[in-house]
Amino acid sequence: MRGAGLLAAVLYPRADRVVPPSGHTARLTIFTAAAMAFLAVFALALSLATGRLAERWASELARTATVRVSAPQGQVETQLRAALEVLRTTPGVASARVLDEAEERALLEPWFGPDLPLDTLPIPKLIEVIEGEPGIDAEGLRLRLRAEAPGAVLDDHTRWRQPLVKAADRLRMLGLVAIVLIAGATAAMITLAANSALAANGQVIRVLRLVGARDSYIARAFVRQFTLRAFAGALAGTVLGVAAIAFLPDAETAGNFLTGLGFRGAEWLWPLAIAPLAAVVAFVATRVAAFRVLRSLT
């Protein structure tokens, strides 16, 4: 019923001619819709990107941990073997593997440069632990390592990544809340604009009532105007917002968190929903405003 009304409002070509066009209200409505859609694109991008980030971090930290073995020269090998033995007999460990020199060099290179003399420095050895299902009991493992290989320390990432995942989740929520707020603000703005249009056209409404127009006809005239304006404005705002995001500096060159801000693959389709959503918001807001005003008239 509401969908049919929306269609009729948009397609019925003549209803809105009975309401004189107001350039001022029209321009303000289009501008507001455009600005809101522009913001909505960013809220959407933020929400999708942080969602992606949270998922990736969560799955990574669920899967891997590192055991760091540092011991005086000569004891390293024994400690390493002891730690591996502990890991082999720990439930929840799918595999454990000592990183070779090349891998360690690759890990350290960003901090110390390529000419690091690995063999002369007391660099700890690293064991990469892949967890199975269910994961390992980190506290139990720590106790056993302390007993059997005192130089081995479990670093299970969870400690520092958990808050990051939480923050990313929170950011995604904030993005969604922002979209809802933008829709609400759009509805409020359109309601104000529609109310002012209804007030300015009191005489038009009176004439229409006198010649036998039903409230639904009169409302449709206003609804059509505002729905089309909101749609057109939101479309323009969406295009600008998407363009702005498309031309963000590339993922590799920018910082780590910002790299994710943007759309990936099918996510580019999401902004397509913004203009229709704005139209629906305008349709409902104008309709409610129109019927409320009309019912208050004799």
Binding site: R14, R17, V18, P20, V204, R206, V207, L208, L210, V211, G212, A213, R214, Y217
Partner: peptide
């Protein structure tokens, strides 16, 4: 009681239109 922005012909036809 006319709609001042519409020509006479459309004002006269307004009852049909609505």
């Amino acid at each position: 009681q006319f709609l001042d922005h519409l020509p006479v012909s459309q004002n006269v036809a307004l009852p049909l239109e609505v």
